[in-house]
Nucleic acid binder design. Structure first.
Lengths: 190, 190, 190, 190
DNA sequence: TATGAATGAGTTTTCATTCAT
DNA sequence: TATGAATGAAAACTCATTCAT
């Protein structure tokens, strides 16, 4: 693995573990097995490492959502697949996801603005799926799609505080359950 | 308002805004309109302020949940009321709730342990309601109650990142929608 | 002496000796006999110390020049007295004067702008004296007053690189010689 | 232009602009359009660049002064010519002259010693001219020649802080005025 | 009760220089 | 000749906390 990759990995795991502000650059370079100078050769600052982590998560999530949303299956199936995929990838990149949700306020103001804008776009793409289902009559329309989207991503956000990769629940089970709950809450009740 | 109260209020709003680690004691005392010496007269440390905020939130949530859970209404109604109440109180104490969810890792290790233990008790009380509904046949049993509880509290946790008190959605509407979504996801589908 | 005064004195002598950029804050506080924290209690930054030194020199020189210029003696006498006084005060505040002339480029850009504006005002007040003598016919008019002013202040500027307080030449002698040379260069030649 | 020449030029302009200590090697090589490795191939250190700049200025000034001093014209004319020439060459090599006067304290101690010795020799050669005029009766003898020499070089030193090559005053005019002022201050007054 | 000067450990960052290629 | 990744020492600055008053 290259030095920058080792640094990103070390930073990701440490930021996930203790929070950006409680991690010293010294710890990051020690975990990566390099010196501080090397870090500043590749990254302009500690903030830069965080920015890079955000960039990677955003790019990955956007690509994957797009793939699922653009499919031709019925909307309920596409939403279920996309929701399950968010869970799976969040769990597979557990540390990065944790950092993503908890360290927004540690980003420099201008980057934070950009990140929020990208997240909003992502949120809107997801919401559009729900609206599509509501327009087509599959989903109940008495819940604002925007609110349902927040509702679901809240659960994703929260994963980092309780889910254990080494626990009894496999990522696929977790993902299916969560996607089921989302769909259940959107379907018409009898 | 007394000096300690002013300090707690100032600390709560600042911690909510920027995160515990990005707030200097100097800022807190300035916002509270007192001096550092005064703060250290009433609180042993900056950590102490955080601990106090956690204590208040925990005590309040536990009391309220107990009140709703101990009622004699049908379980679905009790769960709906309890869920809606969590939302309402979180929104009414927006800053404290934000701090509560985001600053666990800034607590000193031993306090963090206590806080987690209390939260677990709270979580279990809520889960017990769901299990009661599953045992009685009102709720679907194919979703682990523990997971559904996490699912719901994730949405509460997440509120702090998007809900705006001054937005168009009133707390009561928000609470009803969220409680509806929870109940909808637990009911049997047709 | 108070702590801020001790710090200013230590900084002045060290900046004069080695130049602002070659002096570590650690050296300053050691010479002042305090800790770094104490320095940052009184001064916002290392730059701040430099700014303060500039402010003091500027205030003193402006006041003194004004006093001499506003007199009612013949202009040649007033110019001679003012010129000699610049030398005397520069020599009496040797370190501060050295810093003043050599560290402009180490000032933060905005402060540098202010300092230059103040110096210009000072320069213009001095130049006005020369122009007064030219207008009255005492001084030769074939040398631009502005240029003569620069000419003289160059010699003051330069003092720091060669004059030794502990040398054979007393400040008063130095001052008289320099003021004589200035006046000589301005008088009509036979 | 060769690589070493480009490096010297880049270093000279940057040192003149910001001062030796505020210029990073990285900036120098960027302005010169080469890499750090290349610089360290030709120069042993950043100090080495500064030493080279001092060497060039010293050699040039010494040669030129010698040429003017060794002439057979009357001493007043030789001094006037030498003085004007110092101004002209300082202005023609504005950046190098600026560096020469302002960065002595950034030279490594031993080099600084050498540079000061060479400057002293130069100063003495100039002073000898004044003493020659005093011995011959052309110049007033009541001003120490040493002091008059410092007086004049102070003005040269100072040029870098106010003279603008693109201003209204041409180098030749400046040089003539300054040489005139020097001679005027040395002549007997009526 | 309250002040605020002072501490000192810890933080991020810079940068001249080296060296394997 | 030249590259540029990597080093490591030193720098400025922050901040929770203490303590004499």
């Amino acid at each position: 693995m290259t030095v920058p990759e080792r640094l990103i990995d070390a930073a990701t795991s440490l930021f996930a573990e203790k929070g950006f502000d409680r991690v010293a650059v010294q710890e990051i370079v020690e975990r990566a097995g390099v010196t501080k100078g090397a870090m500043y050769h590749y990254f302009g600052s500690k903030d830069d490492l965080l920015r890079e982590i955000y960039g990677r998560v955003l790019r990955m999530q956007q690509e994957r959502l797009e793939k699922f949303a653009a499919d031709t299956d019925p909307v309920a199936e596409r939403l279920h697949a996309a929701a399950a995929d968010v869970i799976i990838t969040s769990v597979e990149n557990y540390d990065a996801a944790k950092v993503f949700f908890r360290s927004v306020d540690s980003l420099p103001a201008e980057i934070r603005k950009d990140v929020r804008a990208e997240r909003r776009k992502y949120h809107e793409r997801f919401r559009a799926l729900i609206e599509e289902g509501q327009a087509g009559g599959e989903f109940r329309a008495d819940v604002p799609a925007d609110l349902a989207t927040h509702y679901f991503f809240g659960t994703v956000h929260h994963l980092g505080t309780w889910y254990r990769l080494d626990g009894p629940l496999k990522p696929e089970q977790l993902a299916r359950h969560y996607a089921d709950l989302l769909l259940a809450s959107l379907r018409h009740q009898h």
